[in-house]
Write a protein that binds this DNA or RNA. Structure first.
Lengths: 209, 209
DNA sequence: GTCTATACCGGGATAGAC
DNA sequence: GTCTATCCCGGTATAGAC
């Protein structure tokens, strides 16, 4: 039976992925060479190409793993009601996003680097950002339809909030030391306050004149 | 006199910088090779090294140019009062930052890519982010000392706002087309509303229970 | 200072034995 | 499927003529 072979192959693939995850956090996606990965995994260079066409495909694999893992828990926990003007609901959302970043840091780092390294002319940053915050945008639109007054168009607020979350998480989680001496909980709390105030309190006219 | 030589050299250096600026926006800093720059500038490869040790040094030069230009106008326009709870003051600040990003896009793109491409383990992202938002942090601390209640520590709010601004600007300004069909003014207005509400309205307890 | 030519090397990718 | 050995190219950086 070929089961043994398959198993061994699966082991190698897993080893490569595992090594990649580790290296992506330490050195980053861009600076990690394929040979670094194979070396760290204790395999040969040639073996890599039996499993992945290139580094991008490996990343895609990691991403798929993450989605498979994360989507379950998210769907399970995801509240049906989405009144983001409710401070606690908002905080739950932000906290969940932050937690996913934290848990899948290798993939997050890799994706972030890969996105930014792309040709600016490709417009990929904007595309990714809007795609990843689509759900948030819809929630905001829903609020608007219900008569809630937002400080701006959902089409810009959602990407803005997503940008803040992603960039800040990247910075905080890769801060070797000397980062914010602050627990994740505190950070999420602060962000919640910032966003919550902006989204919710807009009716209270602070307009001059 | 050697003035003629010097002048020619200065011309070459300027040409290289100018070409670099153009290419950085189109292809990005990382994807632009030294040979691309010299080619675009109509100079030879070897000539490059007469002016810069490497690509990093060229970027440092561009950055210096930008600072020299920007600091004047900023200092000139910078209001002495910094009550960021005043919506218009806040908007002026955000608008100014956005304008600098827009005007010096090549340098901004290059710095951003360079920052993100660094080894995550270096912690550079957090270091840069805190350094670039130091002034904002001080303003927030000043507010706090005066008894104003913020939604979180200035040490995290300032980087958070900076992260939002930087990442969003990068995404928006490199969005080939299909970006937000929105003028800069509208974007700044929306961001102002978002941040202003968060910073200012916190007293109004929206706490549950 | 600027050019042409080239040395040099890192690293992606493949060939072919096992 | 995995290995070793190698090809090969892009791109940095330098040498030396002008």
């Amino acid at each position: 039976m070929t089961g043994v072979r398959k198993q061994k192959a699966a082991q190698t693939e897993a080893a490569l992925k595992e090594a990649a995850r580790r290296l992506f956090v330490e050195r980053g996606y861009l600076n990690t060479k394929i040979t670094d990965i194979t070396k760290a995994a204790g395999r040969s260079t040639g073996s890599f190409y039996e499993h992945f066409a290139d580094k991008d495909e490996l990343l895609a694999g990691l991403l798929a793993d993450m989605r498979g893992q994360a989507s379950e828990q998210i769907v399970a926990e995801h509240p049906r009601e989405h009144d983001l003007t409710d401070r606690e609901v908002l905080k739950a959302h932000l906290g969940m996003a932050w937690g996913v970043f934290r848990e899948h840091l290798p993939v997050v780092v890799a994706l972030f680097q890969s996105m930014v390294a792309d040709e600016p002319g490709s417009g990929r940053a904007w595309r990714d950002l809007t795609a990843d915050t689509e759900m948030l945008r819809e929630h905001l639109e829903w609020l608007e339809e219900r008569g809630h007054r937002l400080p701006g168009a959902p089409g810009i607020l959602a990407p803005a909030i997503g940008a803040m979350l992603a960039m800040l998480a990247y910075a905080v989680m890769t801060a070797a030391d000397g980062g914010p001496e602050m627990a994740d909980e505190e950070i999420v709390e602060a962000l919640t306050g910032l966003v919550s105030g902006g989204l919710g309190a807009f009716g209270a006219s602070r307009m001059p004149g």
